[in-house]
């Protein structure tokens, strides 16, 4: 397991596409001390690797395809109303190529 350092935390934050202040990283590094002690409790469970990971409580058992029901799509103006930058009925982004 990766040991905790500010660099590791900065790497994790960078992957999540946000920045934090140095003070926030310091606080987070301190918090990880407790958190890793708590996480150690999981590793101490003797038979922890004897079972498969549980990803959902149980299978909800949907075993059929629902009928196709035609729907009227929302107007473009409605769909775009939450976007900050719109041009020609499309969401505008910073230029990527060229």
């Amino acid at each position: 397991m990766k040991t905790i350092s500010k660099d590791i935390l900065k790497k994790a934050a960078s992957k999540l596409l946000f920045d934090m202040t140095e003070a926030q990283y310091t606080l987070l590094e301190d918090e990880f001390g407790t958190l890793l002690s708590q996480m150690d409790l999981i590793g101490k469970i003797p038979d922890i690797d004897s079972v498969a990971p549980m990803t959902f409580p149980f299978d909800t058992g949907t075993a059929f395809m629902r009928d196709d029901i035609p729907e009227t799509p929302s107007p473009v103006t409605d769909i775009l109303r939450n976007a900050g930058h719109v041009e020609d009925d499309q969401i505008k982004l910073p230029k990527v190529v060229g």
């Binding site: 397991m1 994790a12 992957k15 990971p53 990803t55």
Partner: peptide, 25 residues
């Protein structure tokens, strides 16, 4: 960041997957 740390490739087995196994137990 806690979530991202648990999902780092080198941590996934010992943190995320083990948490899911603990849940099953």
């Amino acid at each position: 960041v806690i979530g991202s740390y648990a999902l780092l490739r080198e941590n996934q087995d010992v943190l995320f997957l083990r948490a899911q196994k603990g849940r099953r137990l």
